[in-house]
Write a protein that binds this DNA or RNA. Structure first.
Length: 188
DNA sequence: ATTCGGATTCTCT
DNA sequence: GAGAATCCGAATA
């Protein structure tokens, strides 16, 4: 298993969103490692995307991490109780990112908790505000690994993104990607 | 200083 | 399917 390199995150966001499927998130806590394979993502495409926090290109206290170069973590609190894990993409100054909505635990022994939703995923991994601005390329406590297995195109489905009805025509963009027949996907 | 509401989840019906 | 839980960032003044 090799750590995913910077160049992976600098590519077009929709490409990265699809390529993230099948990658393992590795979270190191003490001398334990939690691993889960990404099965569902959503792309948020910067200033033009009304559903994105960076809509209009305005830099705010919350969204400024998204303007960093690809490979950083953007995490924020939603509805007052759920953390949402995002990976920043593209070069510095291009505010695009990908929401990780669900993953499938890769582990010998049973680990309590669910990972089939963005809030649940963060709780399972023990993520919070302190992970904002974390660099997946260098971090000692969280990163991405690939085993080289490529997900076949035929296994990837797309749909409209979830929970952004207010975003008018942008709400209809098919920028959610997930693995076919995977029981950890948050919704059909 | 105050108000508003959300990239969700859980519980109960 | 509906409603609640619960916080902070962002917008308004």
């Amino acid at each position: 298993m090799a750590r995913v390199k910077r160049s992976f995150y600098l590519r077009p966001t929709l490409t990265v969103a699809k390529d993230l499927l099948g990658k393992n998130i590795v979270r190191k806590i003490g001398n334990r490692k939690l691993k889960a394979r990404i099965v569902e993502t959503e792309a948020y495409l910067g200033p033009k995307d009304m559903a994105a926090h960076t809509f209009g290109g305005k830099v705010t206290k919350r969204n400024k991490t998204v303007f960093k170069k690809g490979g950083h973590i953007y995490i924020y609190l939603c509805y007052g109780l759920h953390w949402q894990l995002n990976f920043v993409t593209r070069k510095k100054g291009v505010p695009e990112c990908i929401l990780i909505r669900a993953a499938e635990p890769v582990s010998k022994r049973k680990i309590v908790g669910k990972t089939n939703g963005p809030g649940k995923l963060c709780r399972w991994f023990g993520l919070d505000k302190s992970f904002d601005k974390e660099d997946l390329v260098n971090s000692k406590r969280i990163w991405l690994e690939t085993d080289g297995d490529k997900i076949k195109k035929s296994q990837i489905l797309s749909s409209e993104r979830i929970g952004i009805e207010y975003a008018k025509e942008w709400a209809r963009k098919p920028w959610r990607f997930y693995l076919r027949n995977n029981s950890f996907v948050s919704r059909k």
